[in-house]
């Protein structure tokens, strides 16, 4: 697929990516490994702004035409923003999972176990 794994993000075993390079806390989305497995995403259920989420716990849902997946929080903290654009148009997650298809941002209090891009790619048998 066209969407390769980004080297400067970190990844959870549940196929979420975490980008802590920005000023707005940690930005979170799902990887191209996840979107390839899911197929066309038609519905996303995200935590609300202000909600406290806990690393490793379910915080939302991603639904495709054929299947549904729980979204696990890769970090703990307070949700500072959700991407309304993907709620309106979930295909953004398929088309640009690491960019416009981001899901929400979190003010991180602690991180769950995260992998480097290298480790994540190796674990899932995909290329960087």
């Amino acid at each position: 697929m066209s969407n390769n794994i980004l080297t400067d993000y970190r990844y959870s075993a549940e196929h979420e990516w975490v980008d802590t390079s920005g000023s707005d806390g940690a930005r979170i989305g799902i990887t191209s490994v996840a979107t390839d497995a899911l197929g066309d995403i038609v519905y996303v259920d995200l935590p609300e702004t202000g909600a406290e989420i806990t690393a490793g716990e379910v915080c939302g849902e991603v639904e495709s035409t054929k299947s549904v997946s729980d979204l696990y929080a890769p970090v703990s903290g307070k949700v500072t923003a959700v991407n309304d654009a993907v709620v309106d148009d979930p295909s953004l997650v398929n088309n640009d999972p690491y960019g416009e298809g981001w899901l929400f941002t979190v003010e991180v209090s602690s991180e769950g176990p995260l992998m480097s891009a290298d480790e994540y790619a190796k674990t899932n048998g995909v290329e960087l």
Binding site: A34, A37, L38, K66, S69
Partner: peptide, 11 residues
């Protein structure tokens, strides 16, 4: 993500 597939065609 934990993928739960459904329907008989996506096995």
């Amino acid at each position: 993500m934990s993928n739960e597939t459904s329907g008989s065609e996506n096995s």
